[in-house]
């Protein structure tokens, strides 16, 4: 296996452990069987080409996106976005509160539910990044917004502060329903390099 692949495999493994913890917490809260997995991790250099979110989301679903975002600062600067198709989130909210609502207009109550879920999942991801950089990250509770697909991609590209993206594919299985989404973490080049350096250290330990 080449070095680059191994590096991403280690990252994937680390994130799977942390989302696994998030899943068990969510599972206890809503009293349903929940599985969260990160089947793939990629990085993206915004300087090289245009970021097209559609390449990372399931093709068969159109429409709006529901995005929970947290920003972290001080020791490490970045922004993490948990993105799911809004249509799928409606199913998910219904499962959480045992309702059968097909309305695509989200109320403040729905947003609060997404805020709680986003909080748990993003805590696990960003917390893991902090752990492996050996940094304590300070961040707020997620802000939840509904975006159209192009406007969200544009939003990510316009944030000039960050040059790199860490992209985590995330699969959410709740009872029999599967929801595919993506987590996009905006990072500066130095933060990403720092993260990769720490992964390399873990890799070295594997050979010791």
């Amino acid at each position: 296996m080449n070095n680059e692949n191994l590096r991403y495999d280690i990252l994937k493994e680390l994130f799977n452990i942390s989302v696994g913890k998030a899943a068990s917490l969510l599972s206890e809260i809503i009293n349903r069987r929940i599985l969260l997995t990160v089947p793939n991790v990629e990085t993206f250099n915004l300087n090289n080409k245009e970021f097209l979110l559609d390449n990372y989301l399931p093709k068969e679903i159109d429409g709006a996106l529901m995005v929970s975002s947290i920003s972290f600062h001080e020791n490490l600067k970045g922004k993490a976005n948990l993105i799911f198709p809004a249509q799928k989130m409606r199913t998910f909210i219904n499962l959480c509160v045992n309702e059968d609502n097909s309305e695509m207009n989200f109320t403040d109550i729905d947003f609060d539910i997404i805020k709680e879920i986003g909080n748990i999942i993003l805590n696990s991801i960003v917390g893991e990044i902090g752990n492996y950089l050996d940094l304590s990250l300070d961040y707020t509770l997620p802000e939840v917004k509904v975006y159209s697909r192009p406007s969200f991609s544009k939003n990510i590209e316009e944030d000039n502060e960050y040059t790199h993206l860490l992209i985590l594919f995330i699969t959410f299985v709740i009872d029999e329903t599967e929801i595919e989404g993506v987590i996009v973490v905006n990072l500066t080049l130095s933060s990403l390099n720092e993260l990769m350096k720490n992964i390399d250290r873990i890799e070295k330990k594997l050979y010791e």
Binding site: L25, K115, N119, N123
Partner: peptide, 24 residues
């Protein structure tokens, strides 16, 4: 509850901010 205990623990040890929604 078990999950509330876990959450409180995370808040104390990692400084995470947590949110529980009224609906859930």
């Amino acid at each position: 509850t078990n999950y509330f205990n876990k959450t409180i623990n995370d808040v104390i040890t990692d400084g995470h901010k947590m949110f529980f929604s009224a609906a859930m």
